[in-house]
Design a protein around this nucleic acid. Structure first.
Lengths: 93, 93
DNA sequence: CGTTCATATGAACAACCATTCATATTTAAT
DNA sequence: ATTAAATATGAATGGTTGTTCATATGAACG
């Protein structure tokens, strides 16, 4: 069923992290600063992203570098965003 | 930000409903029977799908017919499924 | 070893969400 | 108007999840 992927992408901070990393490799601190998010929160989310295979980790010295594991992930985010924009959200009524 | 789309797709029963409807138009009862889900549950989920613009409703007599509002939605589900399958999920460790 | 930087972890809490049950609304037919 | 069929709604509940805070782990270096 692979609920994990969907659940993972459903969280806006996790999507922000993925977008932030993009095609680079980034350590936790950089992501944390870049997004102005608490370090521990970034860490928690990275753990979840790792668990679902959306990012990969590369330990180097003190720092841990993360990268998005497949370019298709960003592409998926892009098409979802476009699709989302094109939908007519119907609120209250 | 349009969190709605992602949140909506993150729920497996809602995805099942979308897949079930596919390119057809279906009334609540049919969906309910087809997926062996309680009528009220289907109704609740359809309401959410409607709210996010993922389905559209067509009232006809007693019955309400629902259809997936854009074919891109099913396509997105498909690519997400494929991507999900290709990811190496890393559990406990 | 002790210290510092970088990251991970765990507990606790609040907010959210899916499900169920019971009931209301709507439409059509008699 | 009554009844039945189809769907919607609301309250209640249990479970999940995001966030924070405090603390632990690990790695490098004096």
């Amino acid at each position: 069923m692979n609920d994990g992927l969907y659940k993972c992408l459903a969280e806006s901070n996790r999507r922000r992290i993925l977008y932030c990393i993009g095609e680079k490799k980034m350590c936790v601190n950089s992501i944390s600063e870049c997004l102005k998010m608490e370090q521990s929160l970034v860490s928690h989310h990275l753990k979840e992203l790792l668990r679902c295979g959306l990012v990969e980790r590369e330990r180097r010295g003190k720092k841990n570098y993360y990268k998005v594991s497949k370019k298709e992930i960003i592409e998926l985010l892009e098409s979802a965003r476009k699709l989302g924009d094109s939908l007519e959200v119907c609120d209250g009524g």
